[in-house]
Amino acid sequence: MSTSASIANEWPLWEVFVRSKQGLEHKHCGSLHAADAQQALHMARDVYTRRQEGVSIWVIPSAAITASDPGDKDTLFEPAKDKVYRHPTFFVIPDEVGHM
């Protein structure tokens, strides 16, 4: 994620996502340096799945990720806070209705 001048000759940084088993989502598990996407995949295999931690790997150039600023947390997420009616528990339903 760093872009300082000294890293011109460094292999670019990649973010690694691993699907632990079929049916589950790919989860971010770390990052690594690699010259290209194929190499990043091979390295991710060796670095992050030495004990069968995954059945599938995604690698994405770290530079391609746009992240929200933690400082914007309030503006981004505050609006959802007062909309409790979005949760099913907001509505009181008589017991005799049973499971709904």
Binding site: M1, S2, S4, S6, N9
Partner: peptide
């Protein structure tokens, strides 16, 4: 090394 890099230092450094 990856964890340290998130703090703004580079692998080469």
């Amino acid at each position: 090394y990856s964890a340290a890099e998130t703090l703004g230092t580079s692998r080469d450094q």
